[in-house]
């Protein structure tokens, strides 16, 4: 069950899901891949998603440094059945989003920054902590 603190995070993520057509799941995790909170259906393995997102962002960060392109603002992967997008949240966390094949990428780009800032504000205020049962 989500705590009150998690509920605030979940509210931010749910708002993003409702604002952007095609977004199915949203999660926030630490940069080392530990799940903090998620607005997701039961069919998603959230621990795996958090680890995958951290690895994806880490790879993108290394790649950006290798080709002298700085740090990633967003990583988007297109699959046959949808999208996975990862954005950094501050310097210690990340937001990962799953979308179906019709996900509105322009809408996501327009709304994701506000969501990231909202999550960052909550995390910076130390209102939430990583799940201890991971």
């Amino acid at each position: 069950m989500a705590s009150d603190d998690d509920s605030e995070l979940i509210a931010v993520m749910r708002a993003l899901r409702e604002q952007v057509v095609g977004v199915t799941d949203v999660a926030v995790a630490t940069r080392d891949g530990l799940l903090i909170a998620a607005d997701s259906g039961e069919e998603v393995d959230l621990d795996r998603l958090a680890a995958l997102a951290a690895a994806t962002l880490g790879l993108a960060s290394g790649g950006g440094a290798a080709v002298d392109r700085g740090v990633p603002g967003q990583v988007t992967l297109e699959y046959s059945s949808g999208y996975l997008a990862v954005r950094p949240v501050g310097s210690t966390a990340l937001m990962v989003v799953l979308g179906d094949r019709g996900m509105d990428l322009a809408g996501f780009r327009a709304h994701a920054q506000a969501a990231v800032e909202g999550l960052g504000t909550l995390l910076a205020a130390e209102k939430v902590h990583a799940h201890t049962d991971i």
Binding site: A11, V12, L16, E18, Q19, A114
Partner: peptide, 8 residues
């Protein structure tokens, strides 16, 4: 903090 920034 989201009331204004994130309309629901």
């Amino acid at each position: 903090v989201h009331a204004a920034a994130l309309p629901r």
